[in-house]
Computed example of a mutant assay.
Amino acid sequence: MSDQDAYRREQARQTQLLTEAIDKAITDTSSDFAMPMLNAVAGALVAVQGHVLASAPRKHRKALQAAMEKQLPKAIASAKGRVSTAQTATIGGKVH
């Protein structure tokens, strides 16, 4: 196995572990709410993404952000059909 293959396998392993941990944290925390808002979950994920990008060295930040944006469509496609649908509530004529 080449160094690049080993790197990719380790990245995939860590990505899977972190994905499962984040999903569990969201699921466990959302049980504290009568109905968790999808916008709140999205806002929290964006905040974490901002922290990750801010922690990267300035000269690597654009490349990291581009890599994250590149992976998003694939992540959405792979998640379709595996995730439960979110509830949408209408309060005062506004969708939440």
Results as ranks from 00 to 15, higher is better:
V83Y: 07
V83S: 14
V52F: 10
A75H: 05
T88C: 07
A79V: 03
G93E: 07
D3A: 07
T27C: 13
T85F: 13
T85A: 14
L64H: 01
M1L: 01
A56G: 06
P36T: 08
D32H: 15
A66G: 01
T88M: 15
E10M: 04
R13M: 04
I22H: 05
K24R: 15
Q11R: 13
K59I: 10
A79P: 03
K94R: 14
S84D: 14
A40H: 06
A47Q: 11
L45I: 00
P73S: 04
T19I: 04
Q87T: 12
G50E: 04
M1K: 01
T88A: 14
A89N: 12
A79L: 13
T15M: 11
A21V: 06
L72A: 08
L64M: 05
V52G: 04
P73C: 05
Q49L: 08
V83Q: 14
K59G: 03
D3Y: 01
K94T: 07
A79Q: 12
A67L: 03
K62T: 01
T90G: 05
K62I: 00
G50V: 03
A34G: 15
I26C: 04
K80M: 11
L18I: 07
I76M: 10
R9K: 09
T29G: 07
S78L: 12
D32A: 14
H96E: 04
V95D: 08
A42S: 11
A54V: 02
S55A: 14
A47K: 10
